[in-house]
Design a protein around this nucleic acid. Structure first.
Length: 454
RNA sequence: GCCCCCAUAGUCUAGCGGCCCAGGACGUCACCCUUUCAAGGUGAAGAUCGCGGGUUCGAAUCCCGCUGGGGGUACCA
């Protein structure tokens, strides 16, 4: 079993991407296979420098290690498509398809294509399925025109008739997914720049790298027929497809988006999410073990993860649930562990040095039990502990009013408490508690009501 | 528009023909515990299993239609 995660370095990795990577990783671990990382940077226009490093950092944070990848190499290096293109990996495959008449050089320019699309729409034809006139030309004629220097793309000659089927491990209800070839168009394999398009590059790479299972997000389902056709054209064994459910936005309107949602993987460790909690939560985005188990260790998840249990319906991003789960994981931490994790957040607020001194560390460690059970995000700590580092203004007086009490009763209770406490000869835990309990009794209040106000 | 996928409570999900007049979790509410807040415990409300037809002795589970949602429709991935 060999699987891969093949992101495009167009920005930071968002949480949906991490989920896809995680499922591939889990699959590999469960079956004792390999998990590879490959960078698909064939989109020169959207390329963001540094994105690949950032993305690897995100994967490492959550604990997904790869067996082969751009940074560590492997038997199929390089693992970056632009580099593979330079080495001449894709070109021979394109030429082979050309020679066999399974692809053709298309001289229609992007501008002409736009015009044709606009014309089609004007005539009420919404489905524009491009088939280049050159698909019927002899190769020699294509080459002749190419020799004049006219730019061209290479397109796959998709059959006009018949249908194309493929199986999916997750969707289709056990049946093959079939589309009529008439619904398809001649996809571009090689751009005019000579750079391969995703469809070609990923497929050649998957084949060469011995990928057995392609697990990718659901949005790829519509392009799977092209891939099936390409495998046929090459005469290669097609890997198994498994299209993972998309992760929908919290309101269910559309898939998670980098632009609209605060879901960059890096944002989560900044805000104080634990990698273990994230791992657990993400495993449940489109997969579940049984009807009640949710909190599981990494090992348990690896052991239990199977493709059969992956959902076919979309997952929904639920920050509340994630936060709750993060709280559960935080509560599992020891005081010392939590202190260690909190220090950077407190340093961020300027409450301790960076790194913190031994005294600061010891002080924080005494504070930690106060907020340990309440914390759901590590980033909340500075706010909760502000009291200890800064003078704070008085809070909203209405917060003092306890359950089943009113403002007048609260004021009375506070005055009485003030008097009683002033009268106390000595303040210590026992004397304070005794005095206040007695007072509560006197006022006909439960201790909790009085103590709450104070 | 067309093509494809999907459809159990506010949300995530279990369920793959009888064990389900549907189980768990988040969220909500109540009570208990508690020096507050949390955490924890107990309990409650919340789903005619999207709708309509079939198949079957029996359907949340299989089939068809509809509706709804999502995805795709690029020389982006």
């Amino acid at each position: 079993m060999r699987v891969r995660f093949a992101p495009s370095p167009t920005g930071y990795l968002h949480i949906g991407g991490v989920r896809t990577a995680l499922f591939n990783w889990l699959f590999a671990k469960h079956y004792g296979g390999q998990f590879l990382l490959r960078i698909e940077d064939t989109d020169e226009a959207r390329y963001v420098p540094g994105a690949a490093d950032n993305l690897m950092e995100s994967l490492r944070w959550i604990g997904l290690n790869w067996d082969e990848g751009p940074d560590i190499g492997g038997p199929h290096a390089p693992y970056v498509q632009s580099q593979r293109k330079e080495v001449g990996i894709y070109q021979p495959h394109v030429e082979r398809l050309l020679a066999e008449g399974k692809a053709y050089m298309s001289f229609t320019t992007p501008e002409e294509l736009d015009q044709m699309r606009a014309d089609a729409e004007a005539r009420g034809i919404k489905a524009f399925r491009f088939r280049g006139p050159e698909r019927d030309w002899p190769l020699a004629q294509q080459q002749e025109l190419a020799a004049t220097g006219k730019p061209y793309t290479v397109r796959l000659k998709v059959p006009m008739e018949g249908s194309t089927s493929f199986h999916d491990l997750i969707r289709g209800g056990g049946q093959a997914i079939t589309v009529n070839n008439a619904e398809l168009y001649d996809i571009v394999l090689l751009k005019a720049t000579g750079m391969p398009v995703y469809h070609l590059a990923h497929l050649v790479d998957d084949h060469m790298m011995g990928i057995t299972h392609v697990m990718r997000s659901e949005e790829w389902v519509p392009s799977a027929p092209y891939h099936a056709l390409l495998y046929q054209a090459f005469g290669w064994q097609q890997p198994a497809f498994a299209h993972l459910p998309v992760v929908l936005r919290q309101d269910g309107k559309g898939k998670l988006s980098k632009r609209k949602d605060d879901v960059g993987a890096n944002r989560f460790w900044e805000r104080g999410y634990l990698a273990d909690a994230m791992f657990n939560y993400l495993a449940l985005q489109g997969w579940s073990y049984d009807d009640k188990t949710e909190i599981m260790t990494r090992d348990e998840i690896v052991e239990r993860f199977t493709i059969e249990k992956v959902q076919s319906s979309p997952a929904r991003w639920n920050p509340d649930k994630l936060r709750d789960m993060n709280g559960i994981y935080i509560r599992k931490l020891s005081t010392a562990e939590l202190t260690e994790l909190l220090l950077p957040h407190l340093a961020g607020a300027g409450y301790v040095g960076n790194p913190a001194s031994a005294e600061e560390r010891a002080y924080v460690e005494r504070l930690v039990p106060l907020i340990h059970e309440r914390l759901e995000e590590l980033g909340q700590a500075p706010e909760l502990l502000e009291f200890f580092f800064n003078d704070v203004s008085y809070p909203d007086p209405t917060l003092l009013i306890q359950k089943k009490m009113d403002a007048a009763g609260t004021v009375t209770a506070l005055r009485a408490a003030h008097e009683h406490l002033q009268a106390l000869p000595e303040w210590n835990e026992a004397s304070l508690e005794e005095a206040l309990r007695a007072l509560a009794d006197e006022l006909g209040l439960k201790p909790g009501q009085l103590f709450g106000t104070l």
